[in-house]
Design a protein around this nucleic acid. Structure first.
Lengths: 325, 325
DNA sequence: TTGAAAGCGTTACCAA
DNA sequence: TTGGTAACGCTTTCAA
């Protein structure tokens, strides 16, 4: 592999000039430009990023920390992040944290030692100390922050309100809300929206806590359908939980949507694949990822950030698990 | 951030000694060891990986090239790769190729400029010239190779045979095989297994080509159910296609499995979530990813590789889309 | 068992 | 406009 010295020699200029040319910084005469271009082409030269990073103390690596790429929400997010990152010449390092502080910390350390340019983080541990002394830019996604970390989120309260209202409009009178983990900001917000939408309405409601995993959701959905046999609606805090409820309900002989209506939250692709298709409050996942990535890159390249907290609005997608009249 | 020089000063030894200590290479006296350890602790020193890489011409970055992380097969694979990689101190860079040679090439170039340690690749473009002059180790996954690149795959022929045989055993007499793209090795192998299993049997068969995407599969499934209204079985070359067929069939009023039985291939988590649950020929996706990663790391650290081509066997998982008597 | 010093390939400052 | 050269932080060879 040719290096900058070879190029300089070939072009009969100094390495300093080649470097200036490469970075479009400082003066380079037309003549020099041309001979350098020729040298680069004939040697098939490609700058060594590692050497460059050692010198500049910066890479074009972005760390993407997600709880688990296996959870259907995150591949869609990762895709968006990767697309945008690539278009700016950045490359993404995938980190599964399992929501564990130690793993997040480990990754932060490993990547910091590599001069990572910044992080996009989806976690509920943002107050954890290991984020305090991260010296590179961070953007938080989908989960709320405590510090001054820029965020992009969906308006979860409003989304839940819309979803619940739709359930009501479709005639549900006895609704269970499968809420996400207590203490997790987005989950708390979604219950809040649910409560607001059902308050003062002629409906019976129950709230049950439920993790986002499919297996756990199945168990809880089963218990719900046994404990509250008369319910005619479920508002789930995630599509995964909603789909688990759908499956369990069908297995127990309930007809969806005639007998029981279900609304999910997230808008993952999966919702289209089940049958009937899942009615859900869809976040624009791709847009969130894209936005977060652009914000991060702005921070990295220190263009000043105009808005530090972006909210993307959620949108109701009516499919088959509710009765559209 | 403290550097190796600071540590050396603090421990009253030379940087060479610290380096030897850090890499457990060459002689370091007990006394030196202790004072270095103390210095590292008190300075909270962490080696700079970039500098190290510049010197060794190697990183602990592994490039994972997949067609699209959004396709349910790949997150499970990525998870396995990441888990194993992390346990060996490697970190993974996610690359979505969209099966496009240019994108693969772009990533290969970008990562090569970063001294990437190796690649794990899932592609059908392995014969493409851009893999020829990659100077770091590569392991191919799930797709067959042409060159001398080590591979881990499922025995697709045998898997398809088993899946088809199960359909037959459950009484299907008129089966459509939704085969994957012609020319794609794994897809060709799966049809081969299907043909072998149905040859000389008292069944009618049809073979229809179908991409792996959900949307395309839906359209094709619909056409199949219109063109061949009498079929009572579908053997799909991927779970995504199978699930699309399931959905379309249900929407058209067909009862699965009473009226129509379906068998998929892949074993993605999604298969558990639909209802009825999808009967499928499951690849052990996690194991494949884990195996590939271990092989790659062996090659990187140039322990000699004992087996260059590993085949993981596929296993039939019977759920609700076929009639288990 | 240890240390001096020459790389690794760039960037960027300073003088020319 | 240009070039010499000292960093960047580590590894590794060679001599001691």
């Amino acid at each position: 592999m040719a290096n900058i010295k070879d190029v300089a020699k070939h072009a009969s200029v100094s390495v300093a000039t080649v470097s200036r040319f490469l970075n479009k910084k400082g003066y380079v005469s037309e003549a020099a430009k041309e001979s350098i271009e020729a040298a680069i082409a004939s040697l098939n030269y490609r700058p060594n990023q590692v050497a460059r990073s050692l010198s500049t103390k910066r890479t074009n690596l972005i760390g993407l920390i997600v709880p688990d790429i296996t959870n259907p929400f995150f591949p869609e997010l990762a895709r968006a992040v990767e697309d945008i990152a690539l278009s700016y010449g950045y490359t993404i390092v995938l980190c599964n944290s399992d929501e564990k502080a130690e793993k997040e910390e480990l990754y932060i350390n490993m990547l910091t030692q590599k001069y990572v340019a910044g992080f996009i983080v989806t976690t509920n541990l943002l107050k954890a100390p290991h984020y305090e002394d991260v010296s590179v830019p961070i953007v938080a996604l989908d989960r709320t922050i405590n510090l001054s970390i820029p965020t992009v989120t969906t308006d979860n309260v409003e989304g839940a309100r819309i979803g619940t209202a739709h359930l009501l409009a479709c005639g549900a009178k006895n609704i269970v809300c499968m809420r996400g983990p207590v203490g997790l900001g987005l989950a708390d917000d979604r219950v809040k929206g649910f409560i607001e939408a059902t308050a003062d309405k002629d409906v019976q409601t129950h709230i049950v806590e439920c993790p986002f995993s499919f297996e756990a959701s199945e168990k809880i959905a089963e218990k719900i359908l046994i404990d509250y046999p008369d319910i005619d609606g479920i508002f789930a805090s995630s599509d995964t939980s909603a789909i688990a409820a759908l499956k369990v309900a069908q297995a127990m002989g309930r007809h969806v949507p005639n007998d029981l209506q279900i609304v999910g939250f997230d808008g993952v692709q999966l919702g289209k694949m089940v049958s009937p298709g899942l009615t859900t409050v869809a976040q624009d996942i791709y847009k969130m990822g894209a936005y977060a990535t652009r914000m991060l890159i702005k921070m990295i390249e220190d263009t000043s950030l105009t808005e530090k907290n972006v909210t993307v609005s959620a949108e109701l997608i009516v499919r088959g698990t509710t009765r559209k009249d």
